[in-house]
């Protein structure tokens, strides 16, 4: 199980704005461990999915060039204060994490 996602969900007029920060190494797989000189295997989030009222409102596909502890923000229409939004990720090693937040 990956670390918990940090999330902020805010209504700005009609627009539902979601910002998320995901604690994750996002190891690109090019680095060598200075101690062992072994290549550090790639370990990064590959997919992020957000759902509102059962609809998928946003999907992100990532490669290893997304920064460590990834940040993403996206917006959509048709939500209201008090609604919930779910955000999920999974990575190339099969780890995953998911969070739910309420629009303010």
């Amino acid at each position: 199980m990956g670390k918990p996602i940090k999330i902020r969900a805010k209504m700005k007029g009609d627009i539902a704005e979601v910002k998320a920060l995901m604690p994750h190494e996002m190891e690109a797989g090019f680095r060598r461990d200075p101690a062992t000189n072994e290549r550090v295997p790639a370990h990064y989030i590959t997919d992020v999915v957000a759902q509102h009222n059962g609809d998928v409102v946003f999907t992100a596909y990532w490669g290893p060039a997304v920064s460590k502890n990834p940040f993403v923000s996206f917006s959509f229409l048709g939500a209201a204060v008090g609604d919930t939004i779910n955000v999920h990720w999974r990575d190339n090693k099969g780890d995953s994490s998911a969070i739910e937040a309420v629009f303010k």
């Binding site: 627009i15 996002m26 690109a28 090019f30 509102h52 609809d55 998928v56 409102v57 946003f58 999907t59 992100a60 596909y61 990532w62 490669g63 290893p64 060039a65 997304v66 920064s67 990834p70 940040f71 993403v72 923000s73 996206f74 917006s75 959509f76 229409l77 048709g78």
Partner: peptide, 29 residues
């Protein structure tokens, strides 16, 4: 797409009918 990165495609976002076309992300170069 970051042309000079070892694997240039950094991120691809799939939007839907309710999306507002405005996304932010932080990338490595």
């Amino acid at each position: 797409v970051v042309a000079n990165n070892p694997t240039p495609l950094a991120a691809s976002f799939a939007l839907g009918p309710r999306s507002v076309a405005n996304v932010s992300v932080r990338i490595k170069m």
